[in-house]
Amino acid sequence: MKWIRRNPEVVFIPLLYVALYIAQRTGFFNNYIMQIVMLACINICMTLSLNLVNGITGQSSIGHAGFMSVGAYTSALITTIMLDVSCMSPFMQLVIFLLATVFGGVCAAICGYLVGMPTLRLRGDYLAIVTLGFGEVIRSIIRIADVVGGARGLTGIPKLASLFWIFAFVILTIYACRNFIDSSYGRACMAIRDNEIAADTMGINISRYKIIAFVLSAFIAGVSGSMYAHMIRYLHPDVFSYAKSTDFLVYLYAGGVGSISGSVIGATILTVLPEMLRAIANWRLVIYGILLVLIILFRQEGIFGGKEFAFLKMKTGGIQNIGFFKFRRKLKKSPETSAQEEVIQ
C-alpha cells in the first residue's frame, strides 16, 4: 500500500487508459477525437525519439521522418503485401502486427546505424546534412518502388494499431527514454552534449555513445512509423517529407528540448491545437504560426522549460521536478550531486 502511495502512476496510468477506453466505447469521444488522441501519441513517440538525439546527445537530426517512413513501409509491406492478414484470426493478426512493428523498428535502426556510423565519428553538424539527405533518398526510393505503390501511395493497410497498443507504446517509450537518460549511457550522452572535449578526456567513447543514442532513436522512430501506418491506413512518400521532420523539431523545441515531459506536452499541444483551430477556417494555420512564434519569443526554453513531471522520478536531465504526484528526492544530497545540479541550472 505504502509502495503504491509512493508510486501512484502505477494506478493512474492504467486509469488514464481505462478512461480513454470508456470514452471511446460510450461514444463520448468520437472517432475524430480518438484519431487526434492516437496521432498525438505517435507524435509524442517521434518527439521523444528526436529528443534522444537533439536534446540529450546534442546532435542534430533534421530528417527524422525518413526513419519513420522506413518503419512504416517495411511493416506495412509485411502486413499488407506479403501476408494477407485480413483472413486470419484476430490473435494471429495481432502477433503479425507486433512482429512487423518490431521488424520495422529494427530496419529503421539498421538504417540509423548505417547513416550514423560514418557521420557521428565526426564533430560538428554533419549529421544534420546526412539525415536530411537520408530522408530525401528514402522518399525518392519509395516513389519508384512499385511494390509499395510508388508515387501512388500504399492503400489498404489493415487497421491493426488500436488505442491500446498505441497507448502502451507511448508509455513504454516514455519509460525507455527515462531509463536510458538515467542510466550511465544517458549520462555519458549528456556529458557529450555539454562538452565533447571534456567528455572525451573523462574517457567516454564519444562516437560509440552517439551511435547508441542515434540507433535507439531510429528504432523508436521506426516503431512509431509502423503505428502510424496501421492507424492512418494509407501511406504516401510525400507524407514523410522534410516538412514532417520539421514538425517534430517544432514539437520538441516548443515543448522544451532535453526534457521528456516537455516532448510529451509539446507534441500533444501542437497536435491538438491545429485541430481545435478548425473553427476559424482560413486563419487556422496563420494563428498556429503566430502561436509558435510567441512561444519561442517568450519562452525560449519551451513550454515546459526543461522541467520534468515528478512521476517520472528523473535523477538526471530535468532541471526540476514539478506537478503530478509530488516526488521527494530520496537521493543522498552528496556534494557532487548538488554541484551537478548547480551546473545544470
Binding site: W3, N7, E9, V10, I13, P14, Y17, V18, Y21, Q24, R25, G27, N30, N31, M34, P90, F91, Q93, L94, K159, L160, S162, L163, F164, W165, A168, I171, Y175, N179
Partner: peptide, 30 residues
C-alpha cells in the same frame, strides 16, 4: 524501478486480454 514496470505491464496486459480483441472492430462499430 523494475517493480514499477513489471506491475504496470501486468496491469496493462490484463486490460489487453479484456479489451484488445474487441478493439479492431470498434472504429466501425459506432
Amino acid at each position: 524501478m523494475k517493480r514499477i514496470l513489471c506491475l504496470m505491464l501486468t496491469l496493462c496486459f490484463v486490460l489487453a486480454v479484456g479489451c484488445a480483441p474487441a478493439q479492431p472492430s470498434s472504429p466501425a462499430a459506432p
